[in-house]
Design a protein around this nucleic acid. Structure first.
Length: 563
RNA sequence: UGUCCGAUGGUGUAAUGGCAGCACAAAUGGUUUUGGUCCAUUUAGUCUAGGUUCGAGUCCUGGUCGGACAACCA
């Protein structure tokens, strides 16, 4: 029976288009039985949820076909890159649950790439150009008009070789010369109009220091790096699609191993900015507390917020892989984290906005320690004892003096259960001079205690509570979307995406938690009854407990109340 | 007024010429010591016009709409 089910499941398994290409290649033995992918970030920023998709595709595909996956840093532009980013990228990839087979840097290949460039010069396929940036831009033409050829295009091989070697030797100033491929200035693909291969940058590189003053462009580095590592399938995002003819041109002219570039549509999320440049701006302008601000879509931000690697991998699996543009609803990511957290987190009672509840017929100094199950989804999670006393705090919003019909919680004369404890009935309320309720007085029914035979009595509502004496004040940080616009990057001309920032994206307040949270360590995750999933912040200490709200629970009551 | 790519429910993704399926969202009902969770049910889709074929979401042609490309960024 069970076997049948699993067989059916594997038969029904849908292959995405990348898997299909790979299976075709495996069937034709294009690369033997080899599948080798790579994840190639530029170390110029922190990884975000969009990279997570790419990581899951590259590492996941390799795993699926018993292949290998490299981590390669595309570090060909020294002015933007830094080891801070290298370190964070390695940490984030590992945290997501992946490990690389080879760890490489494009800068490992600077010497190889230099030799490739000389080879191209010797074949008459590359030349040193002295046009200024502006001139070159003008001569490139437009998408509808052919470009014109550079006056330096037909220099002799010897002259080109000499000039290129002197470029490397540091004889020339930044921007004075570049090495270009000699392809076709009238090519309909702008990238094929004599693209730049090398530019002069007199700047220290985070790994090669001052060894080089000429650096290869992305196009001249990426495909060749793939080739050197014998990558079989070079999976990247759609914006590199127009680069593929150039990628293949270099491989062909250089007569080296030919990986296959395959493009997929990058991840877009509504209410989310994913551009590295813009995220960097948010950090630099201190709109957020840093790259790992829990509101950021970065991997480290999500981690601090309380997301689990499992939930992110599950998300990547659910959104799939295709070539059409997409905008995923952020609700799907929230579904994934709720699904995971619901299974693994222990429940804890925490009152966010307290109002005092007094049980008039409960003994004055009595303290009962009530048995509370940690996780109804997982009986093995065990239980804890929660102190119960005459005076409690409950959520202010759990009591309504003039409730609508479908209000299940506490109201004058009404009955509710206090979770793990007794059924109580509301007798009266005390108000201050401004009319605000300061105390709710109730009576309890001793025989309805949880676990007792008579505890089966049905009531509509169940409330969480903490003892007014035995509780721990903690700091809770409630997050909302960083941007209030569905497409935050879409702004009118002359306006800026930061105008779409949500001023209400972070609220900090004090809450009263049951004593069991006292020993929580940074990274610990809980479900605070009805208030959502929370994660102990990295700055939390035993003197000052801080909790980040990962996400709320699905709140159906809000919808009912609207009607 | 170029080249390339894409178009399947509200969203995302399958169906490789043969019953348009899955997930999220939405709606309804059931269970429930929190209105959460869990379970069941329902709503809803092949951009368009032709063609090939016994049969087209799939192949061909035209159109429409959307995206990418003119950095010494990746």
């Amino acid at each position: 029976m069970i076997e049948d089910k699993t067989t059916q499941a594997s038969e029904k398994e849908h292959l995405n288009f990348i898997h299909q290409i790979i299976e075709d290649d495996l069937n034709t033995q294009k690369n033997g039985n080899r599948v080798h992918t790579r994840f190639p970030p530029e170390p110029n920023g922190y990884l975000h949820i969009g990279h997570a998709k790419s990581i899951c595709i590259n590492f996941g595909t390799a795993q699926k076909y018993n292949g290998k996956c490299n981590l390669r840093f595309d570090d060909t532009n020294p002015v933007k890159e830094d080891t801070e980013y290298v370190d964070s990228i390695m940490e984030d990839v590992r945290w997501l649950g992946f490990d690389w087979d080879g760890l490489y840097y494009a800068s490992d290949y600077f010497e190889n790439l230099y030799k490739f460039a000389e080879k191209l010069i010797q074949k008459g396929k590359a030349y040193v150009c002295e046009l200024s940036q502006e001139e070159m831009s003008l001569q490139r033409g437009t998408v509808t008009k052919a470009g014109v050829e550079s006056p330096y295009r037909n220099r002799s091989i010897e002259e080109n070789l000499d000039l290129f070697r002197r470029m490397r030797a540091g004889e020339f100033a930044d921007g004075s010369r570049v090495l270009r491929a000699k392809i076709d200035m009238a090519h309909p693909n702008m990238l094929m109009r004599d693209p730049i291969l090398y530019r002069i940058i007199h700047a220290g590189h985070h790994r090669t220091g001052n060894k080089w003053c000429i650096y290869p462009m992305y196009d001249f580095a990426h495909g060749q790096s793939d080739s050197i590592e014998k990558i079989t399938h070079s999976i990247c995002t759609l914006e590199f699609e127009v680069h593929r003819p150039l990628y293949e041109w270099f491989i062909k002219e250089l007569e080296i191993f030919a990986p296959q570039q395959i493009e997929f549509a990058r991840l877009n999320l509504n209410y989310t900015v994913m551009s590295k440049r813009k995220l960097l701006r948010l950090v630099q302008e201190k709109r957020v507390f840093g790259w790992d601000d829990p509101r950021m879509p970065t991997i480290c931000g999500l981690r601090r917020r309380g997301y689990t690697p499992e939930s992110i991998r599950r998300f990547a699996e659910m959104i799939g892989v295709a070539r059409r543009d997409n905008v995923i609803d952020i609700g799907l990511l929230e579904f994934c984290i709720r699904e995971d957290l619901n299974k693994i987190t222990n429940r804890v009672m925490t009152v966010l906005n307290p109002v005092k509840l007094v049980i008039d017929n409960y003994p004055e100094n009595e303290v009962e320690y009530l048995e509370a199950g940690n996780n109804p989804e997982n009986p093995e999670a065990g239980s804890r004892k929660v102190p119960f006393t005459k005076e409690l705090y409950i959520e202010r919003e759990d009591f309504m003096e003039n409730p609508p019909n479908k209000f299940f919680r506490l109201k004058p004369g009404g009955e509710v259960r206090l979770k793990y404890a007794y059924i109580i009935q509301c007798e009266s309320v005390v108000k201050d001079e401004s009319g605000e309720i300061t105390e709710i007085h109730c009576t309890y029914q001793p025989d309805t205690k949880s676990g007792l035979p008579n505890s089966n009595k049905k009531v509509k509502g169940t409330l969480h509570w903490v003892s007014a004496k035995h509780n721990i004040p903690v700091e809770v940080r409630l997050y909302d979307r960083l941007f209030s616009a569905e497409n935050p990057e879409e702004v009118e001309d002359g306006h800026d995406f930061t105008e779409n920032l949500n001023p209400e994206s972070l609220k900090i307040s004090t809450a009263f938690a049951e004593p069991s949270v006292k020993d929580s360590k940074p990274g610990d995750k809980f479900q605070f009854e009805r208030m959502g999933y929370f994660c102990t912040d990295k700055d939390s200490t035993s003197e000052r407990l801080i909790f980040n709200r990962t996400c709320t629970l699905k709140d159906t009551w809000a919808k009912i109340a609207e009607k």
